[in-house]
Amino acid sequence: MSEKQYKLVKCIINGKAQEAIVDVRASLTDMLRNDYRMTSVKKGCEVGECGACNVIIDGECYNSCIYLAVWADGKEIKTLEGLMGPNGELSDIQQAFIDEAAVQCGFCTPGVIMSAVEILDSGKIYKREELRKLLAGHLCRCTGYQNILNAVEKTMYQRLGKELPDYLESR
């Protein structure tokens, strides 16, 4: 076995400048969970299929399981932990997931919510079909996706101060 290899990785995580010496073999999931205790970042498939490990890097979503930790150097990373308000409040999208029963076991939820954050932060309005495509990088074994779509779509309309379409209203 060859020598272990390490690298200093400096990045901004949820708005805070951080640095750590990281094993070059680590994935970004490993670094976020082990070095920073960001346990919202889940290990599902670890091959980029399920989206449980999804985080936002410089404004775009990535599956952190297939992203080398060393690549995070100089980047700005957002995880679900960063959505929490100063007194532990939930963000609108998290509350919507609860209200819409879009969470069951919760394992996929942090990843899906980070995709939702990228979608909502774009400030654009999407049709249901477009939202389906934008959320297609996530597997959820519990909810059947319908409630997830409802939660994201409702939050999208609410943030834009628009009225909800009829099919979302009646609940």
């Binding site: 599956n63 934008l134 990088g137």
Partner: peptide, 9 residues
């Protein structure tokens, strides 16, 4: 290709 996260990487 793949899904949104895959198309970003």
């Amino acid at each position: 290709v793949g899904g949104p996260q895959i198309r970003n990487i």
